[in-house]
């Protein structure tokens, strides 16, 4: 088991900030955690890595209890750049990780070149830009070639070139067998990285979000949307309100052929029908920005 989170609950004062999180990952994959600020993404990552304690549940990473510090030989956590020491150089940070993880120093040069920070490796971190700090954090996270890589907002402060480099590195790591769990607000980048997205809201992972994305979505323009809605509702078929004369549905809820048959049977005219893939941004809007759904 690469990630085994069972009914994880965390309370802060009287408020439950994580309400029974369950995640099981047995084979390498890229998973994105998406949700508005305060939904519990960083708290979840911090609980997983024992930076925070929690009230109920269990966490296992790479088959070991999350409280065992030895997991960090195989698990890396890319965090906020406040973890960096301004007076030290990038080299000092990487050297420290090498020394505590018994990694040969020769890896420092390799990883610095891989993330594109070799030229400023010996500069003090306080002179780094936001993007340079992200590069260093990435280098620190991958120098031990982890089996599980956790990333909290890894794309923050990156210019498009750096974001592409970061994405390519993450995809390479995935292909090399690393499981990646990242939280991000950059939904376009998430679409390019993975179709497995866990949407978080108020400390919970929304059940419907466990579905893989990139499924097909159809948007139908109809002569009588209200009648179509009541027909679909009577058959307990999920749909999404689109515009005044449009509704949409997912292929996973109903095939195109079934939709056409139902409309014909109920004498509803299909004026037009459009097909597209569902992306993270659209799903996010549906879940968090009040786009009506059944």
């Amino acid at each position: 088991m690469i990630i085994g989170i069972d009914n994880l609950k965390k309370r802060y004062k009287k408020e439950w900030v994580l309400k029974g999180i369950n995640i099981k990952v047995e084979a390498p994959q890229i998973i994105a955690l998406v949700g508005p600020n305060g939904s519990g993404k960083t708290t979840l990552l911090n609980c997983m890595t024992h930076l925070l304690d929690f009230n109920e549940g269990t966490v296992e990473l790479i088959g070991k209890k999350h409280t065992d510090p030895s997991i960090f030989k195989e698990v890396s956590y890319l965090q906020d750049n406040r973890i960096l020491y301004g007076n030290l150089t990038g080299f000092d940070h990487l050297k420290f990780i090498c020394s505590v993880q018994k990694i040969p120093d020769v890896n420092i040069k390799k990883v610095a070149e891989r993330v594109g920070m070799y030229e400023y490796l010996k500069k003090r971190v306080r002179n780094y830009s936001l993007g340079m700090k992200q590069h260093l954090l990435l280098a620190m996270s991958i120098i031990n070639e982890p089996k599980l890589l956790l990333l909290d907002e890894p794309l923050t402060g990156l210019d498009p070139t750096s974001a592409i480099t970061m994405r390519n590195i993450l995809l390479e790591l995935y292909q090399e067998g690393t499981t990646i769990l990242l939280s991000s607000h950059n939904l376009d980048e998430i679409d390019r990285l993975t179709n497995t997205i866990y949407f978080m809201k108020d400390g919970s992972i929304l059940k419907e979000s466990l579905l893989k994305l990139n499924t097909k979505q159809y948007i139908a323009t109809l002569n009588n949307v209200d009648k179509a809605k009541s027909v679909l509702e009577s058959g307990s078929i999920r749909y999404i309100n689109f515009q005044h004369n449009q509704l949409s549905f997912m292929e996973t809820d109903m095939t195109l052929q079934t939709f056409i048959r139902i409309m014909n049977e109920n004498e509803i005219v299909i004026i037009d029908i459009d097909k597209r893939k569902v992306g993270a941004e659209q799903r996010y809007q549906e879940l968090f920005e009040g786009v009506e759904s059944m």
């Binding site: 890595t49 024992h50 930076l51 510090p69 030895s70 997991i71 960090f72 030989k73 890396s76 956590y77 965090q79 906020d80 406040r82 973890i83 960096l84 020491y85 940070h93 990780i97 505590v100 993880q101 620190m140």
Partner: peptide, 20 residues
């Protein structure tokens, strides 16, 4: 104090390494 115990400071770097 520079480890930032209360604000996700550098202490988190140390605590996410294989050390106690």
């Amino acid at each position: 104090t520079k480890e930032g115990f209360d604000k996700n400071g550098p202490i988190h770097l140390l605590k996410t390494q294989p050390i106690r």
